[in-house]
Amino acid sequence: MRNSSFALILAALLATAACVPAFADERPGDPRHGKLVYQRYCLSCHGDLGNGQGEFAQWITPRPRDYRQGTFKWRSTPSGALPTVDDLEKTIRDGVYGTYMPTWFAIGHRARLDVIAYIQQFSDRWKTEKAEAGIEIPAEPPNDAASIDKGKKLYVALKCAQCHGDQGQADGVSAHELKDDWGNIIEPADLTATPSYKCGDTARDIYRVFMTGLNGTPMPSFVSQISKEDAWDLAHFIWSLRPGGANHPQPPAVGAVAGH
């Protein structure tokens, strides 16, 4: 076979690539394909039965999600509700910083939809409960010193420090007594230690957590306790605690660490 013949094949590939938008497939996920996606990428942590007891699960904290209850932390939906498909895809696509859940960006949108459809088969909740829409998140007000200061006061008033600590360093009085719905010991987030939170990187992500709570964990929804304006102030304060944030506390002196 000559190179000229093969060059024609390459040209055909190029033409195919040029037609990419025409091939875009937005059909709902197919659980039959999703099972193979799951076997390729998810099995070692989430397990063959979707119970979060894959071969690697025993070695890691936090434990992988047990899909059988249909309980998911990261959602845009009200407390207790199932997540939307978009919520689940966000978690799969972006991963969960600080855990062993990778960023499955490279596997593509189609594979993510398919594996979500397969995951939904592990719990009857997806068959019996009506899907709820995500909460409405109002436009973010200015993230300034005044808002951060108000948020700091709310942090105290809402007793966030009980778990997250006075300085947001996950050393509150209840920090070491927390368990999730599956009986696993879990730790509150150290709000000062990492550049990324599990819920996401923006103040909007933090706002969403206040209003939806984290299902299956002691982190409640505050939607009935604070106004939307207060939630933004609190989100701005939390956001400021990150490394590089406006209100990031200085590391303690060496002597203080030793004394602790």
């Binding site: 990419v20 875009a24 497939d25």
Partner: peptide, 15 residues
């Protein structure tokens, strides 16, 4: 360059 087509028929093309 890879083009992810997200289709069951042709899922990716690369040149």
């Amino acid at each position: 360059k890879y083009w992810r087509l997200d289709s069951y028929g042709v899922s990716e093309v690369e040149l």
